[in-house]
Amino acid sequence: MKQNLALIALVVRDYDEAIAFYVGKLGFVLVEDSYQPEQDKRWVVVRPPGDGPSGSGILLARASSPLQEGFIGNQAGGRVFLFLQTDDFWRDHAAMVDADIHFVREPKQADYGTVAVFEDLYGNLWDLVQFSDNR
């Protein structure tokens, strides 16, 4: 059996501001942005660079109800929600600092690798992490 995690839905306030952040600031690739008339929604998928066509992506899902709006920026209840793995922590950390990405925890060396926590445009927490070779 072969399975993989294809997409994770991330509730956003606005498609275009989310694209501007994930593509413009984080350097993700815009995989798809198509209108779905039957639901009056857009299907917007972004993916980290280098992840390839079969890699996991993020579906930027605009909140469509007051209940969903309440989860924008807090999809994991204040915990780190997503983990952006890199092959060069310091290169990507510097690029993110230059792009005005807000880090809430500075870089540290841990047993599993080098890590720092940043916020996306809505306040969801992410780890930028380069795992050590033994992981």
Rank of each mutant, 00 (worst) to 15 (best):
T114A: 10
F103D: 01
D111V: 05
K108V: 14
V115W: 01
V117P: 00
T114K: 11
H102P: 01
V115G: 00
V104I: 14
V104S: 12
E119F: 02
A94L: 12
D98S: 13
H93Y: 14
A99M: 05
L121F: 06
D98R: 15
E106N: 03
D92G: 02
F118L: 04
H93G: 03
H102W: 08
D100I: 05
D92F: 13
A116H: 07
A99D: 03
V117I: 15
K108L: 10
H93D: 00
H93E: 02
Y122E: 03
P107I: 10
I101A: 03
V104H: 04
M96A: 08
V97T: 13
F118I: 04
F118D: 03
D100W: 11
R105F: 04
V104M: 01
A116V: 06
D120V: 06
R105A: 07
H93N: 01
Q109F: 06
A95K: 14
I101P: 01
E106C: 00
D111N: 10
A95G: 09
V104C: 08
Y112I: 14
F103C: 03
R105G: 02
D92C: 04
H102M: 05
V115H: 03
E119D: 13
F118A: 00
Q109V: 12
D100F: 10
D100N: 15
V117L: 07
F103I: 02
T114F: 08
P107E: 07
F118G: 01
D92Y: 06
H102Y: 05
V117Y: 00
G113A: 10
R105Q: 11
F118C: 03
D92P: 04
P107R: 07
H102A: 06
H102C: 00
I101K: 02
Y112L: 04
A116I: 08
I101S: 05
F118R: 02
G113E: 10
V97H: 02
I101L: 04
A110H: 05
A95Y: 08
A99Y: 11
D111L: 09
F103G: 00
I101H: 02
I101M: 02
A99C: 10
H93V: 06
A94N: 14
A116E: 04
P107V: 07
V117S: 08
A110N: 05
T114Q: 14
A110C: 04
M96S: 07
D92H: 09
A94G: 02
R105D: 14
V104A: 02
F118V: 05
E106G: 04
E119N: 11
F103T: 08
V104P: 00
E106L: 15
D92S: 04
V117R: 00
D120Q: 06
A95C: 03
E119H: 10
E119K: 09
K108H: 11
D92Q: 10
D100P: 04
A99W: 12
Y112P: 01
E106P: 09
Y122P: 01
Q109N: 15
V117F: 02
M96Y: 15
H102V: 11
D120S: 09
V97P: 05
E106M: 08
A94W: 12
H102S: 07
A99V: 08
H102L: 13
G113R: 05
A94S: 13
Y112W: 15
A95Q: 07
Q109W: 11
D111G: 15
A99I: 12
L121Q: 15
A110E: 15
D92L: 13
P107D: 09
